[in-house]
Design a protein around this nucleic acid. Structure first.
Lengths: 105, 105
DNA sequence: CCGCAATATCGGTGAATTGCGATAGAACAT
DNA sequence: ATGTTCTATCGCAATTCACCGATATTGCGG
């Protein structure tokens, strides 16, 4: 994952409403449509749809048409990918690459 | 960590330049001032200072005046905190809370 | 005291984000 | 076909972001 990609994905998660949407989607496990999300939030349907689009563009969820509704499925692969990238980032930020105690000249 | 807090911190990291700044700071380990960062990036000093401010406000780094310069230190505690929060988030997004195999009625 | 170097902050510009209501289109039931 | 429901998309306004150059501040050396 490139920095750009990490940054984009993190920014997609960098909004309380979108965090909440992810949780709502998780709770309903693939049986969740836009209206369900809207009902759970104090926001207009268009606004929710926008937030969903951001998550879609980041690859964090996937749209699956189902009759007149659309179901949204969390992409756990993608989340895991981000988790790994984030872990790698933390790793790279770690204080000191001390090799051996005896090596401290 | 509240959602707001998680979102803010993630958004602070949600920019490639700021990721890079974090890496630069890590590499120089506390001996790094604003000019050093600016020299490593194709951006104006004021822009770099702005990005640093974002990281400061998110608590991801700390300023430590040192003569006419300012040194910036990565707050590993804060990073770890975010890591934990992010892990918890992933946990909460996990597909199914299956208790036992025998329980699958 | 005077200039210099480092840096934060101000003012401005253009782009992106966040929110809304209104609208268009698809699928369905009647 | 017609109306209903669900949802994406289109303006639109307000806000924030990203970037810049210019400026003010602060500490240091002469």
């Amino acid at each position: 994952m490139r920095d750009d990609d990490i940054a984009n994905t993190m920014r997609a998660l960098g909004h309380p409403v979108r965090l909440e949407i992810m949780r709502i989607l998780a709770k309903q496990q693939g049986q969740c449509c836009c209206a369900d999300v809207t009902d759970s939030l104090p926001l207009a349907q268009s606004t929710v749809s926008q937030h969903i689009k951001v998550l879609l563009d980041a690859g964090l969820i996937e749209r699956k048409p189902h009759g007149t509704r659309n179901r949204y499925i969390i992409q756990h692969d993608r989340l895991a990918e981000l988790g790994t990238a984030f872990g790698g980032l933390l790793q790279g930020l770690v204080p000191a690459p001390v090799h051996t105690e005896a090596e401290t000249a």
